[in-house]
Each structure stands twice: as C-alpha cells, then as structure tokens.
Design a protein around this nucleic acid. Structure first.
Length: 482
DNA sequence: AAGAGAGGCGTGTACTATGA
DNA sequence: TCATAGTACACGCCTCTCTT
C-alpha cells in the first residue's frame, strides 16, 4: 500500500517539474509530467527514489485561455481602475494641500504657520489676528477606500472620519492623519486633525465646509468663521448627535413616565409577559417589552428585558442583541457586562461585588471549550501528507466557519453564533428560553467565586486616569503609585 | 514569509444624567 | 446625597491587509 495517491501532484527534490502519480509497479512508481501545451511525458522511478517526492498544491504550468487573458487585462480590471482612482485621489489631496494649507485671500498679506500656535497636546490656537475666511486648512495624509456599505458610511461620518468624495463614481476615501513625532522632530503636523469639533456654537472659530478640487474631488475644508484673536483655539461647530438618553429625556418631558407600560403587551406579537418561562417550576426568563419614545413624534422602539431565577427583569442594552442571517434573535452573554451579571447572578450579589464580571468563570471556560471542539475540522487520516492539508484547513477555518454551532449543555442542545475568534469571550446564545436557561444555570454556579475569589484581569491606568485612585486597585495589584 | 500598521474586540474604569 | 443605567474611553490583544 503506497502513500502516493493516484492523480495527486508531487514535487521531486532537485526538480522543478510537477509530477502526477500514475501508479505503482512491483519495482517502479510511474509519474507523468505535463508541459505547457498539455503534452504528457512518462517518468519511472525505482521505489528507493520515491522518498524524494513530496505532495504539492502547486498548479501544473498551463496556458491561460485567450478569453480569460482578455477578461483579466490590466486596463479592464476593476481592481486596477480602483487603484488608479485611489492614486489620483491621493495625488489630488496632497497637491491641493501643498497649494492651499494656508489660504491667502486675494490682496491680503501672506499668512503662514507662524501665525498659528501649535501645542504638544494636538491643539491649534491663533497666534495673532486672523481675518474671517483668511485661513483655510485642508486635510492631508494617505487615503483609503471606504467600503460601499451605507451603514459604514454613516458610522464613519458619525465618528468624525475625514472623507473625500469622487463626484463621478460617488466613492468615498478616508484620509488617515499623517504621523508626527514631536520628540524626534519627524513627520508633519496633521493640522486638519488637530482642530476638534465643539457642540457649543459660540465656541466655534472655524467652519467645516468642502471644496471641489478641479471639478471632480470633494475635499473637506476648515475656514475661519470670524475674525480670530490671538489665543483663540481653532475648533469647528458640529451639532450634537441625539443619544438614547437624550431621546428618553425629551420623551419624559412630553409624556411623563413611559417606562415599561402595560399597553405594549397587547402588541407584543401575541407573546405573554412570561412566555420565556420554560416550565412552571423553572425560573421565568421572560421578555418584557419596554417603550422608548423619541422626541414628540411617537416613535416606538422595542426593547428586551430578561428575568432569570425569580429575579427582576433586567433591561438588555441593544448592544447585547444580535440578529442572525435568518432573522433569529441571539443574546450576547458578555461576561463582564453589568446587565448580564445582574441577570445571571441576581441584583443582590452584583451589589456586593465591585465591577461584577463572570469573565473568570470555569463554567464559561468549559462552554468555550465545547464550542471550539464543535468547530474543529475533522481529524486527519493516515496519509503522511494530510498533516499539511489539516493545517491549511485550520488556516481557512475562519472563512469557512459556519454561522452557528450547537453544543449540549446539561442535556439541552444550545444554538450559538460561532465566535469570530478563539479569543472571543461572549457567548452568543439563541434567544430560546430553554437554551438561555441551560446556559444561565451553568454560569450561575460560578457567580460567588467570580465576584469574591477568582482573579480579574489587571488594569494599568494611564492617560488621563494615571494617578487617580480607583476601585480597580483592590484587584488590579498593578497600580503601585503613592 | 515577515513586519508594520490599522482597526476590531473584550475588559475595565470614569463620568454623566436621572430618579428616589 | 446616593444608586443606577448608560455612555465614553483606555488598554492590550488579536486579526487582517498591505508592503517589503
């Protein structure tokens, strides 16, 4: 029985040819080698030489079909037209910047950066008087294509990313701030990125607008919105974004206490308040809808609250709710999240603990072990060359990974979303009462130990928190100052 | 293949708004 | 004044992508 597999490709030591195994004789092994034109030549090797062969994934040299070569020509390839556009955007941005960093209004005296005052904390102030519109600052840095995804675009805009827009294609490019090292005196100050936004209109000294470079590229621009006096910080006005909290505030002004109200129950798709209870003896893990009013327009947002082991309902933040590709709802059981700890361990225990977290739970570790095991590829066979294939399978595990994984928890089949990496600590459990019940039951055993005995991750305080006394010190053991 | 850099994610602290 | 919920952000590790 040979380890060589008929039809598979092999490399031979000291040869660049790719051999396809044809068959084994009593004294020789037979291979064939294909040339560019598909013509095969036969090669025969004695058994003693077969140890020189190793399995390979390399492709046999062959001509590409003319149609394919035509299709993949550089000048019709999408990738390269995108590359070209990116290069043009990059060039336009830097050309525009070098010409316009400090804009000179016609017949005004030249301004230069000496009329600005830069700080090591990445702020910019006027060093002298600057006239209205007498200063324009453009971004510079390397550009990167922003994915078409609309949600990402909105997210990028909310996060204050600096975006360029190609008018013809509509594609957006993010400008990444250039690097500067003040100690080493290297790089260049990315002035545009050192001008923060303010929600106080009165504090704003700059306006954010955009200009169109040579008719095809929209580039953001910050310009002085009023005459600036020495010492005034450069910052631009950005209207406040309504947060959930603020929406709630507006609502309460309009409607008084909305909270978790009765009328909603009727519209909760026919579910009763304790529909998540798995049996009469088990603790109810129920979903209770709540209302979140936005402004006075009567917009309704459904929210989820869960109860477990006779505890009170815990509102679940939207960040912990995930919807699968089939529309199924999942709960992100994030072990360090206050709401999750409160749900599983109860409010009383959480009150006793400072920063309750189940991250150190042995039961959690066990569940992760089960998930990893369930996601492992099949074990390799006897073929000595399969070890290589196995490694390749592991490497491509992420791309090939199924969306969900099912594990057995105390006899209950629990469906979870597959973790994105082996380090993911959140369990993303399908929102089915029995499944959540099984997981919660298992984790609840560790509440006491996690809150009292088991070590928590150390936290090194730095930045603006350096030197402050905090609650973490009792367990971090790292903050030795004072 | 190795290294660099950007960005995502998990964990934890600090802060703020709100209500009792 | 205190407790609570929610949000913002720091930090460190990781993955992914790009470059060399």
């Amino acid at each position: 029985m040979s380890w060589l597999v008929v039809g598979k490709k092999y490399l031979k030591k000291d040869s660049s040819d790719i051999f396809e195994f044809v068959g084994m004789g009593s004294e020789h092994g037979t291979f064939k080698v294909l040339d560019l034109h598909g013509t095969a030549t036969e090669h025969v090797f004695p058994h003693a030489d077969l140890k020189l062969f190793r399995a390979t994934d390399k492709a046999v040299p062959a001509k590409l079909a003319l149609e394919l070569a035509t299709k993949l020509q550089m000048d019709v390839c999408d990738t390269w037209s995108l590359e070209l556009e990116k290069a043009q955007v990059q060039a336009a941005l830097l050309t525009n910047h070098s010409e316009m960093l400090v804009f000179v209004v016609a017949r005004e005296s030249l301004l230069d950066v000496s009329q600005l005052l830069f700080t090591n904390t990445h702020k910019i102030y006027a060093a002298g008087k600057i006239k209205k519109h007498g200063l324009k600052i453009y971004p510079f840095g390397s550009v990167q294509l922003l994915k078409e995804d609309l949600a990402k675009k909105q997210e990028a805009q909310q996060a204050g990313k600096v975006l360029l827009k190609v008018k013809s294609s509509g594609r957006q490019y993010q400008v990444l701030a250039g690097k500067v090292d003040i100690q080493k005196e290297t790089g260049a100050i990315p002035a545009f990125f050192w001008i923060p936004s303010t929600e106080e209109e009165a504090e704003a000294t700059m306006d954010l607008s955009s200009t169109v470079y040579q008719g095809w590229l929209e580039i953001p621009c910050l310009k002085a919105r009023k005459p600036l006096q020495a010492g005034e910080q450069l910052q631009y006005y950005k209207p406040p974004v309504q947060t959930g909290r603020k929406k709630l505030k507006t609502t309460r002004l309009a409607f008084g206490k909305a909270g978790f109200v009765q009328p909603f129950k009727a519209s909760w798709k026919g579910r009763s308040a304790n529909s998540m209870s798995c049996c009469s003896t088990c603790a109810p893990a129920s979903t209770v809808p709540a209302l979140l009013w936005q402004r006075a327009m009567v917009e309704i947002q459904e929210r989820v609250a869960l109860a477990f082991a006779g505890g009170r309902h815990v509102p679940i933040p939207p960040a912990l709710l995930v919807v699968g590709s089939d529309g199924s709802k999942y709960l992100k059981v994030r072990p360090s999240h206050g709401a999750i700890c409160k749900l599983i361990c109860g409010e009383a225990k959480c009150k006793e603990a400072k920063n309750p977290s189940l991250a150190a739970s042995p039961a959690l570790a066990k569940l992760h072990g089960q998930i990893q095991k369930a996601l492992e590829p099949d074990q390799p066979g006897d073929d000595i060359f399969e070890a290589k294939d196995c490694k390749r399978k592991q490497l491509s595990k992420k791309a090939d990974a199924p969306e969900t994984v099912t594990i057995s928890v105390n006899g209950t089949d629990v469906v979870l979303l597959a973790p994105k990496s082996s380090k993911t600590t959140d369990l993303i459990v399908k929102m089915e009462p029995q499944m959540m019940q099984a997981v919660f039951d298992m984790l609840a055993v560790d509440c006491e130990a996690c809150f009292r005995e088991l070590p928590k991750r150390a936290y090194t305080r730095s930045g603006k928190y350096r030197g402050k006394r905090g609650r973490s010190e009792e367990h971090s053991g790292k903050d030795e100052e004072s």
